[in-house]
Design a protein around this nucleic acid. Structure first.
Lengths: 242, 242
DNA sequence: ACCTGAACACCGTTCAAGT
DNA sequence: ACCTGAACACCGTTCAAGT
């Protein structure tokens, strides 16, 4: 949310307004977003800010605590996610989609959060919100916990794979034949479903909707619209969607 | 680019014979497993091997392609995962558990695979195997693809969170009260289910079993509710691998 | 074919010294 | 309170020179 409103233009050697900790963090975050943590060197950062390398140390201590501050900021940003929508179902979907978008917007920072063991902390607010909706939909106890986790892991998994495809080597056209021959085993629809590289957001929304339909009990939501699936006797696991 | 030298066999017990590419990779992998990629410096590696820093360059080119080779090796190792068990259900579970174990055994290397966009490639073999079982259980087309992805994402999600807990800051005792007050909302069982830090493997197996029960159509498997496994030991995975 | 030390450019960090 | 350059230890990499 806090965007760079800094009036500073990076003109190396040019005197400017006083250097502030916020300005250092902004410039550092920008470098990390573009080139990852190893693209952030104290000397490049100083050049970007037009100061001496050593000035930075006064404001942020050292490189490690600078990265820590960036991580802290990221956690705080992800913590501000709120649900939107009328029904629990819609609100869960909105949470998942927002989560996905925010994670994809800062992959390097998210990776740094993970390295520092703060992934769960980062998800805490979203987890609480998911929990609230799942509760509102009627789930309790272990069932509710499972549902929250399922959504969370699905988001993580999708983001991971998407992020991976972005930086994947060429492979995109040659990919299908990994699946064709006997791999997909006489099931062409499956082969396509697995090998295709379509609109990632659509795929995400679709499979998440299916998951939510399987997880949440029917009837809490007018928009359910799908014929109820019979699950055998005791089994109550998530079914599919449309 | 330097060509790979002939596969000469170094004396098994002896730490110091002639320097070989394999020996370099082994030592490098060991350093990465212990301290992560940034713990691998060419100079430390040379010290470890008892050679001059520059000798390494003859065998592996440079640091970047050394890391590439490590990644390649990791992908190859994860590619060797095989299913075990009698029923599709059991085989899916065994695949997931083996996958989890192998991923947890080399978190840094897995992260490097991901950075290079090879995550999907690394999962390819497991994905094919999962697909085979899901097919055997009777799923087809998009349903089968969804099931494979669900298992895959669940494994990834669990490994991510587990890994995260390992390196998380203290927080373990203070964690529950994040959930207590109005967070878990009058549902104490839920609060405990979400905040607890119990045997991670058990949690994994339990939620995966639930997922599989929900995904696979009933009737293909007689052992639906069998209370067979209660031992804590890791009993199913093939301990193949280098 | 394999190994070596010297040398270079870059890095994070400290510190005495400035204002 | 803030900023600075010099200096140090460490890094990856190149290269001419050894065997």
């Amino acid at each position: 949310m806090p965007t760079p409103p800094s009036p500073r233009r990076p003109a190396p050697g040019q005197p400017r307004a006083t250097l502030t900790r916020e300005a250092v963090l902004d410039a550092a975050a920008s470098l990390v977003r573009q080139h990852g943590p190893q693209g952030l060197t104290m000397r490049k950062l100083a050049a970007e800010l037009g100061t001496a390398v050593t000035s930075i140390y006064w404001h942020v201590g050292n490189r490690e605590s600078l990265l820590d501050a960036l991580v802290e900021r990221t956690v705080r940003e992800l913590d501000e996610i709120r649900a939107r929508g009328a029904t629990p179902r819609a609100r869960v979907l909105s949470l998942a989609r927002t989560l996905r978008r925010e994670l994809l917007a800062r992959p390097h920072l998210v990776a740094m959060v993970h390295e520092r063991g703060l992934t769960e902390r980062m998800f805490l607010s979203a987890q609480q919100a998911l929990l609230h909706e799942v509760h509102a939909a009627g789930l309790r106890g272990a069932r509710a916990a499972e549902a929250v986790r399922a959504v969370q892991f699905t988001v993580i998994g999708h983001v991971l794979v998407e992020r991976n495809r972005e930086r994947a080597p060429v492979q995109r056209p040659g990919e299908p034949d990994l699946w064709d021959t006997r791999t997909a085993e006489d099931d062409r629809a499956l082969a396509r479903a697995l090998a295709r590289a379509p609109d990632a957001e659509r795929v995400f929304t679709t499979s998440l909707r299916a998951l939510v339909n399987g997880l949440l009990p029917p009837g809490t939501d007018g928009s359910a619209g799908s014929p109820d699936r019979s699950s055998g006797g005791t089994s109550d696991g998530p079914s599919d969607g449309p």
